[in-house]
């Protein structure tokens, strides 16, 4: 399998480390309802089809990427840096 890193170009998947779905959003606070935290940490849609997922270019530029990939065919539909993806809702509040 090959992924195209926005910074480094087309690379073999052995340069990357996979984490999982990019969809769950970290609750904004530790006091958020327990169900939200359980959902964030444990529950996955796991679709057969387009899947937004987090890959880390560990043996490259060390960027976290959000790759949209069809889990039935492995076709890559989109790749973008995670920090560019709209993730403002998950910005954490640090004292």
């Amino acid at each position: 399998m090959r992924l195209t890193c926005p910074y480094c170009g087309s690379r073999g998947n052995d340069e990357f480390v996979y984490l999982g779905s990019a969809d769950p959003v970290r609750p904004s606070h530790h006091d958020a309802p327990a169900e939200q935290w359980t959902a964030y940490v444990y529950e996955r849609t796991n679709p057969a089809g387009a899947h937004r997922e987090l890959w880390h270019h560990s043996f490259g530029c060390r960027s976290w990427l959000i790759v949209t990939r069809d889990t039935r065919t492995h076709e890559v539909l989109k790749t973008e840096p995670a920090r560019d993806a709209a993730h403002t809702s998950s910005e954490v509040a640090v004292p």
């Binding site: 999982g20 779905s21 959902a39 529950e43 996955r44 849609t45 796991n46 679709p47 889990t71």
Partner: peptide, 18 residues
């Protein structure tokens, strides 16, 4: 292998990835 797909038919999300 397909548990999530069947569970989705019942509106459930499982702690599982395929």
């Amino acid at each position: 292998g397909n548990s999530s797909r069947l569970a989705a038919m019942a509106g459930m999300r499982l702690p599982i990835e395929s």
